[in-house]
Amino acid sequence: MAELLVIAGLALVCWIFRITFVLLVPADRLPIGVQHGLTYLAPAVLAGIAAVELTGMVDAADPVGSLLGVGAMGVVGWVACRFRNLSLTVAVGVVAILAIDLLT
């Protein structure tokens, strides 16, 4: 029952977040500066997600695994810069992660 309540509550909160600037406060009423700033939301949030994932992956009890994980993402970043091909970037990530987890 507790689990169901959490899921229902969280689903409701997430839906309210999603409709806030669609139904409750029209996005065009936001200050022009904020509307312009939101055009840079994508790079900010992408870098934020990647940084949080990498920070969470660093484990003092497993320095080698942490280093390999960070190194793998370094390689992924290089591939993304060099080839600008998303499929190739993800494929390199999959191979690197599986290699780290299955071979070490």
Partner: peptide
């Protein structure tokens, strides 16, 4: 499933791939 502690980093690879062309 074998233990795959670095599995979430595959999603991170996707986000890095989406980020780089935007810079």
């Amino acid at each position: 499933m074998p233990s795959l502690p670095h599995l979430p980093l595959i999603g991170t690879a996707l986000f890095i791939g989406l980020l780089v062309p935007r810079l």
